[in-house]
Every structure is written in structure tokens, then in C-alpha cells.
Simulated scan of single mutants.
Amino acid sequence: MTHRIIPADPFTIQVSDGEIADLKERLARTRWPFEQDGNENWDYGTNLSYMERLVSYWRDDFDWRKQEAWLNSFKHYRATITDDDDTDHEIHFVYERGSGPSPIPLIMTHGWPSSFREFLDVVNRLAHPEKYGADGPSFDVIVPSLIGYGFSSKPRKPLGPGAIADLWHKLMTDVLGYDTYAAEAGDWGSFVTSRLALQHADAVRAIHLTMLPLRPYVKDKPVTKEEAGWIKEMQAWWRQEEGYRTIQSTKPMALAFGLHDSPAGLAGWLADKYYRLGDTKKHHPFEGMEERFPMDTILTQFSIYWFTGTINSANTLYKSGPAEGTASLKQGERITVPTAYSEYPIDTLPLTPVSWAERGYNIQRFKEMPRGGHFAAMEEPELFADDVRDAFRELLG
């Protein structure tokens, strides 16, 4: 382990009483939209009856101070890291050292519409498995907020996953002093982690992903019949679900005024993705949603976006990511770092063919999970933590 070069300062989440009062006042003034018949299953987007319940709870029953105290029960830090363009970024991260003599350094990266909170239910399970009746390995767990999300800084010049990956490498090496480390992620975090493995293969020992984002180069090897069928099914899925992505990847600023100014608007926009991508029962307008994502859990996520004012800087990753051009592997490029992939049954895409996964990644472990969705660490923390632990035990020996 090398010496520290960049200091990290302890950080405490502190939302003012005035900000909490302002949120409640805005919620009390919510103007409800007209909802046509036929939206019981959210076919037109977020269901009105669910939103009425959510906003009422957020206004009258949600205790931010209680959630804030729970968030602060973890060890938070912020570090200023300079990118290759000589721009400084404040990176917020949770850091829990693992039990035992040789825990594995593990950086875990969230996506959209999530925050660092997504992984908090598994931090101690991974850092201290013995407390949960599980065998090792244990991990030094590092959970950063993506740039532009939560308590990290908002970039004046939007960054893509490749640039963020370089910052993550500096966080792990220059701030925390690790020579080598492992990484885990889903959604946008899987883009960052894949680029981390590609750009810093000498330092990244292994990765675990719940999404395989980098598109392989296929011109020199035509797709198989199975792969072609999967691509067709995937494209059909996206035609039904890509509205949010289309807006955020083209005109995020046009959307920002409504979401930044209205907490109900913010919640309505984000809730739809939790309903669609989470392992939620779809039999009722709100019962399945509330069972999978209890009010306190989902509103902590939404409140982090609200109090930090980061919805637009978070959404803009959908524009800056493609603009960076790092989502496609070039001819001859492949992730050589040992990779474990776990696919949860309710996620953004149909089941990925193993052959497709192996085109772009050094797949050493491919597992289809029995339950859970896009927010797996939050939805199924015990299942998720056991899988991550088992995966790195196999990959690293």
C-alpha cells in the first residue's frame, strides 16, 4: 500500500431546517395533473394514486432527520481530485474498513436514478461478513457519489464515464493508497467500472457487474442467431421505455426547470423508473411498489436529489456519456480483467446471451439471479451481498 497523496476530509450530511420547511411547503402546494383511465399499471407513466400517497407521506410523515442520522452513522468523506483537464472535483464517498487482516478494497458505483444510498444496506455485510454469519472474504468498502450526484460536486463541464473512471482510480490510489483493488457496479456505475477495468487494468483485480454496458466490436465476427434475437427483443423493450433517456440525452435542461423546482415533479419522474426496473409486483397501482420500495427508503433517495439540487447534473450524464464516445469497444478492445456478471430477472433488458457477454468481457462467472431488479443491493441486500462475496472469492481465490 502506498502513502496518501491527496487528503480526504470527514464529511457530515447537514440539511438546514429551512430547507426541510421549504420542501414541505412545496409539497403542500402540489398541483395534481389529470389522469385518464387505464393507468392502473402505469402504462402512461407514474400512477396518480401512488403519487398522492407518496407526496402525502413525504409532506406529513417522512422524517428526514431520522434518515439523515442513519446516513451519518456511516463514515463519510470528501476529497478534491483534479482531472486531466486540470479541473478540481469534490468527490463524496462512504468508506468502511473491513474485518480481518487482508480485506479486499472494493469500490461500488451507483447509477441513475439512484445515489450512494443504494449500497448502504450491504456496506457492513461486505465489510464485516462474520457479523452476519457469513464466511469471507471481507472488503474495505468505498461507495462514492457519482460526479454531479448527491454530495459530490456538480461539474461545469459535463463528464462521461471514462473521465469519471480516471477520477475513481485516483480516489483509490492517490487518496486511499491502494495499489490494486476490485470494483462492483450497475447502471451508469457499470459504464464507469467497465472503463475503469479497461483504462486501469494493471490496478483493477476483478469486477462484478449487474449490467454489461460496453458494446463489443462485431464487424469481424457476425452476431449469432441467438444474439440477433436478443438484440431484436432488447430494441423492442427500449421502444417502450426509452422516453426518459431520449429527453435526458438530448435536452436535459428543458426538463430541469420542472424537476428542480417541484419535489412532486421530481418524485413523479424518478418513481416511474423504480416501478419499471425494480422487482415490483404489477397487480395494483401502489401495493407492489410500496412493498418493494418502502416510503422511507425511496424518499431518502429522492430527498438526496432534492436537497443537493443535483437532478439536472445527474440527468446530464445521459448527454455527456454518449458525447464522450466510450460506450463502444474498438476493434481489438476487450475487458481482460476477470469479470463476474449477475443478471437480475427484472432489469432493463432481456436475459443476455453468454456469447454476447464474452465478446466484450473476460467472463469468469455468469449467474442468473432468482429475484431482484435494477436496484439489487437495495431490493435484496442479503442475496446481493452473498453473491458479490461469492463472486470475488471465485475470481480472486
Rank of each mutant, 00 (worst) to 15 (best):
L146Y: 03
G160S: 10
A182D: 11
H200I: 01
R156D: 15
R156I: 04
A165T: 05
D166H: 13
S153W: 08
L209V: 12
D166K: 14
L176W: 03
Y181T: 04
H208E: 14
V175P: 07
G177K: 10
F191I: 05
R195W: 09
Q199K: 15
H169N: 15
F191W: 14
D187H: 02
P213Q: 09
P144V: 14
Y149T: 09
G150P: 06
G186L: 05
L176P: 02
L198N: 04
Y178F: 13
I164E: 07
S190K: 00
S145T: 03
M172R: 01
V143A: 07
H169K: 11
G148W: 10
A203C: 13
A182F: 09
L209P: 06
P213I: 10
Y149Q: 07
L176R: 01
T210Q: 01
Y178N: 07
G189L: 08
S190W: 05
T210H: 00
T193P: 00
L159G: 00
M172H: 02
L167H: 04
Y178R: 01
V192I: 15
E184C: 08
V192H: 00
E184G: 02
G160R: 12
G186F: 03
A206Y: 04
A183E: 09
Y149V: 12
P213N: 12
L176V: 04
F151A: 06
M211H: 02
H200E: 10
S190L: 04
H208F: 10
F151W: 12
H169I: 04
A163M: 09
I164W: 04
A185Y: 03
G189S: 09
A165D: 06
Y149S: 13
L198A: 07
D202P: 02
D166Q: 06
K157E: 10
S194P: 04
I147Y: 14
D187G: 09
G148E: 12
L198K: 13
I164D: 03
A185R: 00
L171D: 11
P155V: 15
K157S: 08
V143I: 15
G148C: 11
I147P: 11
L214C: 02
Y178Q: 03
P213K: 02
L212M: 13
W168Q: 11
A165P: 02
G160F: 04
S145M: 05
P161S: 13
D187F: 05
A197R: 12
G189Y: 11
A206L: 11
M211V: 08
I207T: 11
T193Q: 00
V143R: 01
Q199E: 13
L159F: 08
D166N: 10
S152Q: 08
W168T: 00
L196W: 03
A201L: 02
A163G: 06
Q199T: 01
G162K: 06
I164Y: 03
L209D: 12
G150R: 00
T180G: 01
G148F: 09
W168I: 06
K154A: 10
L159M: 15
V175A: 08
S153Q: 13
T210I: 12
S190P: 03
L212A: 12
D202W: 13
G189A: 08
